[in-house]
Nucleic acid binder design. Sequence first.
DNA 1: TAATTAAGTCAATATGGCTGACCTAAATAA
DNA 2: TTATTTAGGTCAGCCATATTGACTTAATTA
Lengths: 160, 160
Amino acid sequence: MADLNKLLTPLFLNENEIRKIIELMFFSYRDFTSGPDKILEKIKFGRAHHRVIYFVGKRNNLTIKELLSILQITKQSLSRVLNQLVKEKYIILSTGEDKRTKKLILSNKGRDLEKKLSQIQITKIYNVIKNFDEIDINGFKKVLFNMIDENNRKKFNEIN
Amino acid sequence: MADLNKLLTPLFLNENEIRKIIELMFFSYRDFTSGPDKILEKIKFGRAHHRVIYFVGKRNNLTIKELLSILQITKQSLSRVLNQLVKEKYIILSTGEDKRTKKLILSNKGRDLEKKLSQIQITKIYNVIKNFDEIDINGFKKVLFNMIDENNRKKFNEIN
DNA sequence: TAATTAAGTCAATATGGCTGACCTAAATAA
DNA sequence: TTATTTAGGTCAGCCATATTGACTTAATTA
């Protein structure tokens, strides 16, 4: 029975191999975020500020509601971070056609910071994937995409 | 010149494609950790407890120093989490041959919790990768591994 | 007109990091 | 053998990021 299982189960589905993936996720995510973190620290911001700036930069005229839906945090959590970004003029608010809503855009200052932060991650990714075949990169993207919960995959597709 | 660049630069190295990877990292890591987080909450533990239990479970007789080197946090940060785990008997301490050191092992209780938490992530990964070819999974692992800082790649190899 | 929605705010709480200062005991180097 | 280094621990204070719950205002929609 054990032998039969060995024949039927590919090596990469073994628990030990899967545990390696758990660790790869932990180490890679930590190192992936460490670069921007250092810059944010200097201006007394945190990773949460980066996320807000990133998605506002990506989707101009994002509303608060849409941002909350992407970040999946409470509005109280977003509030502190967003108020700081608005106060320090990284983000500009305007009223939407629906006057209950607010639209968020990056100022030039915000755009500069966004580029500075994201460039670190872009460069890191670039330097990794430039050495790989398209087939490896596609495998990477496909697997990572499927690690996302199904309802959030839709969100990823919506913003892209 | 622009046309020449287009010819020379593969599509997957475009900034927009790389930004998708940034987002895939964010969404996948968040959803990857959300499962264990829910269980941990019930017993008033956090993600930091999971990490400690995970690596102690992986490497029996780990010392504090080695654990700190894997987690890359300060001993003051580790202290609070580890003391809770020892007090609640998830982890058992013993003295090493070098009597300055301490060795950490999981108790049965700790082993049970470790399995319960990791099983969620193992199952999630299993359900994703079982649908892919080995070539995709290898691409995934290779790219993720290279996202880790070089000195930490050594650590990953040491524990595996 | 009533109900819902988008946004904002106040307060309290938890988790997980950090720095700095200081201590003990054991091992190792001068 | 004494001096230094190493492993581990602890106290105190600080900060960032998240949570829940309760409540408000203004605008839209049923």
